[in-house]
Simulated assay, not measured.
Amino acid sequence: MAATEEHTVLPAPDFDKPVKVLIVVSPYYSDIAAGLLRGAKAALEGAGASYDVVEMPGALEIPTAIGISDRRSNFDGYVALGCVIRGETTHYETVCNDSSRALQMLGLQGLCIGNGILTVENKQQADVRADPDGQNKGGGAALAALHLIALTRKWTSTPTGIGFKPSGEDTVMAGDLDGNTTA
C-alpha cells in the first residue's frame, strides 16, 4: 500500500536570490485543500520563498490560472493544489487527464510547476495524501516547484560570447570596420 511505502524526499534547494511562487488551489474539497495548502506553505517558508495564493473553482481551472499568471505577473514558479475523487461517471477521467496534461504542457514550455492535484478513489486516500503529517503531497508539490526553479536558475546565465552575442566592447560587428555603430 502506498501509504506505508518508503520514498526519497529531496531536501529543499538553496537560493541566493529571492524566490516568489504562486500557489493555485481549488477548495472544492475544502478540508483536503486546507491540508495541501498547509503543507505547501510550510515547504515554501522552510526554503525562504515568498508566495501568493489564489483559489480556483476546480482542477480544470488551475492550469488556466497559471497560464494567465505567467503572462501577466512575475512569479518564479507555481504550485497546483486540488483533489479529484472518482465518482460514478467518466468526468473523473476527463478532469484528471486534462488538468494533468495542461500542467505538463505548461511545464514543457518552461514554467516551473509542482503538481499537487490529487487523483484518488475515495476521501480516505485524499485525507492521507493531503495531511502535512502524512504523505504531505502539498509540501511535495512545493518542493518540486522549488527544484525546477533551482534548475532553471542553474542553467540561466549571462552569455559569454558564444554564438552571435558580442562578448565585450572591443567586438567589431560585421560591416563596421572602424568600430562605430550605425542605427
Rank of each mutant, 00 (worst) to 15 (best):
Q109M: 11
I162A: 15
G138H: 12
T160V: 10
T64G: 13
E61A: 11
Y51A: 11
T158M: 11
G58E: 10
E55L: 03
L37D: 01
S99I: 03
I113Q: 06
E55V: 03
A80Y: 02
T89G: 04
V79D: 10
E93L: 02
D16I: 09
N122G: 15
G48N: 03
G134Q: 00
A145D: 01
G46I: 01
G48C: 03
S73A: 15
G134L: 00
R72C: 11
G67C: 05
D76M: 08
I149K: 10
Q135D: 15
G116D: 13
N97Q: 14
G139E: 01
G82T: 06
A102S: 05
A144Q: 14
S50L: 09
G161Y: 05
V128N: 07
P27I: 12
I32C: 10
D127T: 14
L36H: 01
K154S: 15
G161P: 11
N97A: 12
R153E: 00
T156Y: 01
I62F: 05
G140R: 06
C112N: 14
V54G: 07
D31K: 07
T90C: 06
A33D: 04
L36R: 03
V53Y: 02
G39C: 06
G134D: 10
Q109L: 09
S50R: 14
E93V: 01
G140A: 12
Q124E: 15
A34H: 09
M56C: 13
S100M: 08
A130E: 01
R86C: 08
Y28S: 05
R71K: 15
A126M: 08
G139N: 05
N74K: 13
I162L: 15
G48P: 05
V53W: 02
S157P: 04
A47W: 00
N97G: 13
G82Q: 05
L108W: 09
R101S: 13
S50I: 09
A126D: 08
A33H: 00
E121G: 12
N136F: 07
D16M: 07
V84Y: 05
L148V: 08
L146H: 03
L37F: 01
